[in-house]
Structure formats: C-alpha cells, structure tokens
Design a binder for these strands. Structure first.
Length: 570
RNA sequence: UGGGGCGUAGCCAAGCGGUGAAGGCACCGGGUUUUGAUCCCGGCAUUCGGAGGUUCGAAUCCUCCCGCCCCAGCCA
C-alpha cells in the first residue's frame, strides 16, 4: 500500500545493510565514534547527475538514519573550472532530492588560510619542498608503473629556503608553472600517488569566492583529507578510483597534527545502461548541441530528471534498491524506469490524452449534443475523486487503436469490430474515409449503443477492448515531447574504437504538435504529473508549459505487453 | 613477471564455515481488470570465475590459476 518510510533505518526495513553502514555500526558500537559525520563534496564545475544522487543518498541517508549531520562541502580548489552558478544549482538539486545540510554548508576555500599554514608546517617538518621542475619534467621524473622515479634536483633544498620560496609563490613573485610545492614522500613508491605529489600550484586565476586573494591553490589530495579533518568528518565516502589515493590521504593526516583522522571508504560508482555518466561527456553533449542544456529531459542529471518528471522519492527509492558494493557494475536502465513507474502509479491522476489523433464520427449521435460523463481520477484510489468528461458526436482516438486489417488478437477498433470508449459508450465500426491520393485514413465512422453509457451493456455482452478518446470540440490541443533513451547501445562509452556520440539515438526526442487532451489539462500546473491512460506518465514541462497552452513531457511509458508481442513478430 | 581492487543467475544484490543459495529488475507462464496498465499467483543458479586443499561439513578458510577494473594531471 504505502511506501516504506524514507528515513527509517535500513535495518528496520528488514533490508540487509551495506558494507559501509556495517562499518559505521561497528564504529558506533565499539565506541570509536558517538555519531557518524559524513559529507557530500561536489566540485562546482558542472551539474549533479544520478551518480551523484547515489552518493547524496548514501551520505545524507546515513545522517538521517543516525540523526547526525551531513555536510555539504564544495571542493572548490580549481578556479579555472569552477563557477558560482554551479554552486547554486547543486544546492538546489540536493534540496530538491529532499536533503538538508542545516548549518553545515562549507567550502574548501574557507580553509585556504589553514591549508597554507599546514603547508608551512609540512615544510618545517622537512616533509615538503618547492620544486622548480616544469610540468613535463615532473612527469618524466615520476618514472613509470614498473620503474621508480628520480629525485627532483630541488628535493634536498633546506627548510629556510623552502619557506622563503613558498612564501614568494604565495606573494605572486613567480609565474604559473615555474614552481610547485611537493610533499616529500617516496619517489620509488609502487603507488605513483606517493611519488612526491604536487600539493600546491601557482594559478593566477580569480576565484569565485576568494577573489584575487590567492595565486596559489592547493590540490585535491592535500585539501580533501584536511578539510575532512577540520570538519570532524568520521567517514569519508568516495568512489573506487580514489582507493589509490588513500595512502596519501592517510599520510597527510598522519604527518600533520590534525584534530582527527577520518576514515576514507570507497564504493563503486553508479553506471547505468544506455547512458553516459561522466561530467566531461555530459558537458560535451551540452556544448555540441546534442541536447538542449544540462536540464534536457534526456540527460540523467538531477535537473534533467526533474524536468522529465522524475520525483525525488523515485530517485531515492532507486538509490536504495541498487545496493552498494565494491564491484564495478552496470545497473539496467529498466530499474530506474521501474522506480518512477512505481511512484507515479501511486500518485499520478489518470487522464485521457490522444497523442496521434484519428477523427471518429458517431453517425447516430445527435449533431449538437454534448453530455458529461464521469471518469475516475484513480481507479485504485476512489478517494482521489472523479471528474467530468465531455462527450459528443466527433471524437479523437489514437491512430494506433485502429487497424484496417487487424490480427485476431488486436482488441481495438477495426472493420466489423466493437470497442468500449473508456467511461463512455460502446462504438461499432461503420465505415472509413480515405484520402484518394495517399490512401491515408482520414476519419472513421461508427455507431454507438445508447444503452452502454458509462461503459457497460444491459445485455451483458462483452467487448474485449477499451480505448481512450477525447471529444473533438472540447479538446485541448498541445505539444507533447516523447523522450526515449539517449543512446542505442547498453554501454555507449566502453567501445575503444568508437566515440560514444556515434551511439546517440536519433529518435531520443519526438515532438508531437497536434495532441488532443481532455479539457481539464488546460490548466495543468508546470511540473504536475499525470498518467495518460494507456500511454504513459507525462509531466507538464516546468519551463515551457503555460496555463491554456500546456506542454507535456513523457516521463516514461507504461509497460506495454502488446507492443512487446508485436515487436517480437517484427 | 609495479602496486591497489573486484569476480554469486541476463543485470544488480543478500549471504560473514552448518539441514533447502534472500530480494529487486528483466524474462516466461497463469488469474483479476472498463488502462493489453496496476494488482495477484507461479517459474527462473543441483550452484557461487576455475582447479586443488583444510574440514564431519565451504559461496563462506588456505593455495595456485584465469578474467576484469583503477593508477604515470601543476583535474577532482
């Protein structure tokens, strides 16, 4: 009936808990921590996507379950790629998903002074040095996967000189690329991240928060662990590709006197079939015009999903369903589609809408008569009430609901057949009018049985098919956008030879301009979701839809075993 | 033949040495139905990447092998 409580602890839902929650539970029981403190640390260089939603649900979910904080921290250490506008969009998306960071909104740039002081300490400890090698030299000195690196000529420079040089880096005395600060660890480490990683670089770029105060910016590996420690994070959750960075995360925190030492735990990122997930590729789709923008309903960005008609609950349920592990995995797109169907099936009011209209004239129905029929808003939920549907002599039905020469199992309209109009009357085929030139069917003539008002017959005769319809005179004409998967293949970006854009689905968007929907939809509010019976779930476009001129986006089709059957026969 | 990870059904995923290998998606049947939807019922791994070994007993422990992923940004 009702969905399980969103915020109930996983255990209470009788669901097995994931390995991260197991670790946290153990730390709580052992007394290592009295409560967990997690964080979601986006870089403000793009929009959030469904993969981020997985991380958000994890980090904020743990906080909800334990009544503990989850920080929202922007990892804004690279001003050349980051923008203020992304900061706002990201906050909006996290809030929309239903999460609240309370007072815990932070920026890595808040810590730039502390980070600088820590770097000075590292130098004083003899654990960092200013290196004057060029970027290319640093690369060649790093060695390879199988050969150790070589020491930088600057490696044994004295502490005083390092201190002076680092101060002068900060003061803008050097050009970009001429000097970096490096941690002094081990040039022979089998883990390349430990071969004296760069921790500060010169970048004479305006920062969206610190302005022109800094011309040196700290690198991720150095910044992230210290930010976690400064904030008192207990469990720092990130994706698998950072596993090789954990020794460095721990080295920085072990070397410096920090308030605490958070535990980094890695999990597998989300991959979905029939789409791409990397911000770089999403950006490319936007910049090259394959989609309209970051919030194009075909994009699996949070903003795209929102515009498509996905609900926060559906995304949270999806994230809960897919599980969490350390195995690289591909979640089937049908799992996401199933999540939104599940949610909308419960909540979306039912309406009648004809996407590809075919005119039907009921020859024996009075010329000027209009009557009102009653339709349920949700057949499984009578408490959602009903509405009136105008019925008249001229109607529209779906082109797909008529076949001139139908197979036996086609339970719809065709020569000699009778069908039920949903909430209306039984109608029987009489004749059809075709365009003499093209052979295209222009209109169908039928007769109706006045005894079947509402959809049942006193003589108890059965009709196998029920089809949807809209009264022509009262219909609201509108635009409908049919969205389909953006890519044709399950793994568009794993082909080594072919670019992922070669697999774009040319039919991912179908624009229908002459759709006929029931009059109640004229006033649909932007963002409202409906089930167009027998067609799918649709949402009034949040951007382009207007009262009196609605525009609908197809969120997802209904399951369609008929189409599946027909598809199987070719 | 550098290091770090991972391998349970088509796709995810429980399982943490003890009689029958959860659950979801997908798929296949059947029932209800004024949405070919929803809902309901049933089917779907004699087997856990492979081979050995330990044990009365292993998907769970050990050994070897095979496969896949990550790392040589002054990105995060």
């Amino acid at each position: 009936m009702t969905q399980p409580e969103q915020s109930a602890p996983a255990e209470a839902q009788n669901k097995p808990i994931d390995f991260i929650r197991q670790i946290i539970d153990e730390d709580l029981h052992s007394g290592k921590h009295s409560r967990p403190v997690t964080r979601f640390p986006p870089e403000p260089n793009g929009f959030l996507h469904i993969g981020h939603a997985k991380s958000i649900c994890l980090n904020f979910g743990i906080a909800e379950e334990n009544n503990s904080p989850c920080h929202l921290r922007f990892d804004d250490t690279n001003p050349s790629k980051e923008e203020e506008s992304y900061v706002a969009a990201i906050q909006n998306d996290v809030r929309w998903l239903g999460f609240d960071w309370g007072k815990n909104l932070f920026f890595a740039s808040d810590y730039f002074d502390q980070l600088y002081d820590f770097a000075v300490q590292l130098i004083q400890l003899g654990k960092a040095y200013v290196c004057e090698l060029s970027a290319e030299e640093i690369r060649s000195y790093r060695g390879t996967l199988t050969e150790p690196g070589q020491d930088s000529p600057s490696r044994e420079r004295g502490i005083a000189e390092n201190l002076d040089l680092f101060r002068r880096m900060k003061d803008g005395e050097f050009e970009e690329g001429t000097h970096v600060l490096r941690a002094k660890i081990d040039m022979a480490s089998p883990n390349l991240n430990m071969r004296d990683p760069v921790i500060y670089r010169i970048m004479k770029t305006h920062h969206h928060r610190t302005g022109d105060k800094w011309c040196i910016y700290p690198m991720y590996d150095y910044t992230h662990c210290l930010s976690d420690a400064i904030e008192g994070i207990t469990h720092s959750l990130c994706t698998l590709e950072f596993e090789n960075h954990r020794p460095l995360y721990d080295w920085v925190l072990d070397t410096l006197a920090t308030p605490c030492h958070p535990q980094q735990i890695e999990f597998a990122r989300l991959n979905l079939t029939y789409t791409v997930m990397s911000k770089r590729k999403l950006l490319q789709l936007v910049q090259e015009g394959h989609v309209s923008d970051w919030d194009d309903p075909r994009m699996l960005t949070v903003s795209g999903l929102r515009r498509r008609g996905y609900t926060p609950a559906s995304i949270r349920n999806f994230c809960a369903e897919i599980g969490l592990g350390r195995k690289e995995s591909w979640i089937d797109m049908t799992v996401l589609e199933n999540a939104i169907r599940d949610d909308l099936n419960e909540s979306a009011p039912r309406v009648l809408g004809v996407l590809k209209p075919l005119k039907v004239i009921i020859d024996n129905y009075p010329e000027d008569q209009v009557e009102e029929l009653t339709a349920q808003n949700h057949p499984q939920k009578p408490e959602l009430g009903s509405r009136a549907l105008p019925f008249s002599r001229e109607l529209y039905i779906e082109q797909d609901d008529f076949m001139e020469d139908p197979p036996k199992k086609f339970f719809r309209l065709g020569p000699g057949r009778e069908v039920r109009l949903r909430y209306g009357y039984y109608i029987k085929f009489a004749s059809m009018v075709k365009d003499e030139m093209t052979g295209e069917i222009q209109e169908i003539h039928c007769t109706y049985d006045p005894e079947t008002r509402g959809g049942s017959s006193p003589d108890g005769r059965k009709v196998k098919g029920t089809i949807h319809w809209v009264s022509a005179a009262q219909a609201q004409t509108c635009q409908v956008r049919l969205y389909d998967r953006l890519f044709l293949t399950e793994h568009p970006d794993t082909d080594k030879e072919r670019d992922f854009k070669e697999f774009l689905n040319p039919d991912s968007l179908t624009l229908l301009e002459n759709c006929k929907v029931e009059p109640s939809l004229a006033t649909a509010k932007p963002g409202d979701s409906f089930q167009f019976e027998r067609n799918g779930y649709f949402c009034a476009d949040p951007v382009d839809s207007r009262p009196g001129a609605p525009v609908f986006n197809r969120t997802v089709t209904l399951r369609d075993s008929w189409a599946k059957m027909m598809g199987g026969k070719g």
